[in-house]
Amino acid sequence: MSALKRVQQWATFARIWHVYDAAWQNPFESAQVLKKYLKGMHKPIYHPMNDCGDHVIVLNSAEIALPGDEWKKRVYFHHTGYPGGASWTLAWELHNKDPTMVLRKAVYNSMKGNLQRRYTMERLHIFPDANVPKELMGNVSNQIRQVRPIPKRLDHYPEEDVTQFPKVIDYPKDYVVK
């Protein structure tokens, strides 16, 4: 085996680390993207019996966004197994308790319940903010594209862009600008 082929072999079977910024992203749309990287479905050598999944680091999971009023409509069910042990937790209550849990459950539920699911989840590293240990960030070699654009606030634009943006109306001649 030539040196080139040997390196190609290593590169094919090495686990790659990806990073994903979850700020202003829908966790359920993101889960459909993340699970492909976790299971290695983006690779040409993919096979369900082939352990070729990658690691994914998710940043800013506390900043995820849900559409409309889904924070108070989505309910997480848990049962302790004892009579009267059922409990229903709203998404915003769960997010208050643990800001990584909504995204983790979204990824977990996006995958089929087989024996591999628990091991695949082990490769997902979720952080509520951007403080990731350096030894983890050192492994990263790819960034996953966000599924929706981050809305930009007016005070995040530079002053020039706001003043020089094309104007639809002008003030009347005698209007006192406040």
Binding site: W24, I64, L66, P67, G68, D69, E70, A91, W92, P151
Partner: peptide, 11 residues
């Protein structure tokens, strides 16, 4: 307060 403090978007 409550759920209002989390990010939300509208389609």
């Amino acid at each position: 307060y409550g759920w209002k403090k989390f990010n939300k978007y509208f389609d």
